[in-house]
Design a protein around this nucleic acid. Structure first.
Lengths: 230, 230
DNA sequence: CGAGGATTTGATACCTGTCAATGAAGGTGG
DNA sequence: CCACCTTCATTGACAGGTATCAAATCCTCG
């Protein structure tokens, strides 16, 4: 597991940072049992957790930072299936190989756990089983909402929906999309980057959001933003 | 559980059929333990399993027939999130209420299981835990593929993709989409019914499929169909 | 055989993708 | 600390595909 992670990070990390193994923290008061399984690992921005076709042995839980899972099409287009924020568990697979790739959007720390370990612990500990249930159900829920996000919606509505989703999932006031590029947003919403840009500009003109810098968008009026969803 | 299911069927079943409780089958040779939990119930076509906002107490496993989960928008549009075929488990929720509605596409038999029962059994029995894992991962996988199905794809590619998906998931030769209406397909692929119709007609003209009747489409040339995915 | 719904087909408008060019931001080295 | 350079984001013009509206035809079921 160490060799796998280290190799991957070295091979795929554009920033050239090694994955740094963090010391495992001791159990404390109300720590979830599931957070004691596996090892916490640091990944640099754009570092790759795994990629399509590779053996799927581990599950990943975001501690800090953000991740994205995606697939490249034959035409070289990237489709982002999901973003993961602290607390999210990802890497679920039915078979023995990954069907998607996953990367760090920002510098991130993740807890890497063996699938077999988790299943075994779930069999022994009801709390672990329930945490696993909640994590899997959460992934299902988010995927379903993502599917609904496409439903007959204009580019403006999709961008508005995305911003509201991020504000909800990242508890950091109303400033969102930090470190998420326009390209990431476009690949997530199935739009071109130009279309995302135009939609964001229009939302800003309407006063619903404020674009302070390229990577920082602030939701000024979530009521207006919600009305624009349809 | 009996009253809930029966009431639901009576209230929501357009065909006016009661949900019929089936006798629980005894355990046999290699029967999965998870298939011994809960009760098998029959639903008539278009009968409703549950709907958005209702308490989520049960999980559902398709035995025969087909189901769909969906949500209605404020504008009265229906968006189908998923289709379920025999073997699929659905109804996963993080909270105590359903976030989607689910109905029978055809007359169907489903095994209805209490969520709490499954979690308890998973804690006792490794096989149940693993089955639960595989079912949840399968749902995640299908949702992810559905998301990717939208990715920058033409109407023709979406319909082709949908037909290939159904041929793969329903092991019944190459005749698919039985009892799935054009409207269902449209609401699943986020297209208008007219667009689905046009795309299907074009695929038929290309010889990739054959439209014998409204509800019966046969895949004649899956190679050609696969080439049309891009 | 008849009636109502579902599907197909046609004409047109609108939105987004594409191509192209400009402008802004962030990172590096002198 | 500034200039340069690379990457990213914005803006514009135009073409193409799908939604929309309308109407004809086909199926299905009573």
């Amino acid at each position: 597991m160490q060799s796998l992670t280290a190799t991957r990070a070295v091979l795929t990390n554009p920033a050239g940072h090694m994955a740094i193994r963090m010391p495992q923290r001791p159990a404390r008061g109300s720590v979830n049992q599931i957070d004691l399984i596996g090892t916490e690992v640091a990944f640099a921005k754009n570092g790759q957790f795994y990629c399509e076709g590779e053996p799927s042995t581990y599950l990943y839980k975001i501690v800090t930072g953000m991740a994205r899972s995606y697939r490249m099409t034959a035409e070289g287009r990237r489709h982002i299936v999901a973003f993961y924020v602290p607390g999210d568990l990802f890497g679920f697979e039915t078979g023995n190989t990954h069907t998607l790739c996953a990367e760090a959007v920002t510098d991130a720390r993740v807890r890497v756990m063996k699938r077999a370990s988790i299943l075994n612990r779930a069999t022994e500990d009801f709390d672990v089983a329930e945490q696993l249930w909640l994590s899997a159900s959460g992934e299902i829920r988010r995927n379903q909402e993502h599917i609904l996000q496409f439903g007959s919606r204009s580019a403006r509505a999709r961008v508005a929906s995305f911003l509201l989703e991020m504000v909800r999932r990242i508890p950091s006031g109303n400033a969102v999309a930090l470190s998420i590029s326009r390209q990431d947003i476009a690949d997530y919403l199935d739009l071109r980057i130009e279309t995302v840009s135009r939609a964001a500009t229009r939302l800003a003109r309407l006063g619903a959001i404020a674009i302070s810098s390229n990577r920082k968008i602030t939701v000024r009026n979530s009521v207006v933003l919600t009305q624009l969803l349809k």
